[in-house]
Simulated scan of single mutants.
Amino acid sequence: MNIDIPVAELTEADRELVEAAREIVEAHTDGEDGLHTVGAAVRAADGTVHGGINVYHFTGGPCAELVALGAARANGARELSAIVAVGNQGRGVLGPCGRDRQVLLDHHPGIRVLLPVPGGLGSVHIRDLLPFATAWSPDGGSTPYAADVG
């Protein structure tokens, strides 16, 4: 199956978000084999930026993106427009794992994800990262894929 995903070029605000995530991980990492090796930054609809860092644990501790989502919520951000994760030690921007993609789709279905794409970095709508996804909400539970959603 070949799915053509629309990719937008990064804006200046997107580049600033990447830099915020890089600063978080570089300031708080504990090395190659550490517990804190990925930083994330999320931009709220009002332009504020909230950050997080992963908490590695063999049971599946939270990824940096999920920590950033929680931090944004704790600081009053309800609508989020973009998110990015950056690896420590110069690894650069990383795409979200499958669990993060599903959480982003379920809780912030309008968010754009900054990630590596052919030729550099791009911005992709979360729906495009989970084609044919089943969505979930606290009110409706799981709902089947609908091509006309969004």
Rank of each mutant, 00 (worst) to 15 (best):
G47Q: 00
V38R: 08
H57C: 10
A44N: 08
A27Y: 10
D33L: 15
T29S: 14
H28F: 09
E32T: 09
D33H: 15
A40Y: 06
E32Q: 13
G39I: 02
G52T: 01
Y56V: 13
G39S: 09
I53L: 11
N54R: 04
V25R: 02
I53V: 14
A44P: 04
A44S: 12
G52C: 02
V38C: 00
G34E: 08
N54G: 07
E26N: 14
A27E: 12
H57I: 04
H28S: 10
A44V: 02
E32V: 14
D30N: 12
T37L: 07
G39A: 06
A41F: 00
E32N: 09
H57Y: 12
T48Y: 02
G39Q: 07
Y56K: 15
A45Y: 08
A45E: 12
H57E: 13
D46F: 10
T48G: 12
D30K: 10
D46L: 08
E32W: 10
T48R: 14
A40F: 05
V49C: 00
G34A: 03
T48L: 06
G31F: 03
H57R: 14
A40G: 05
V55K: 11
V49N: 00
H36R: 15
D46P: 11
G52H: 05
H57S: 15
G39C: 04
A41T: 02
G34M: 00
V55L: 13
Y56S: 11
L35P: 00
D30S: 07
D30W: 07
H28A: 10
V42W: 04
V49E: 00
D30R: 09
Y56C: 07
E32I: 07
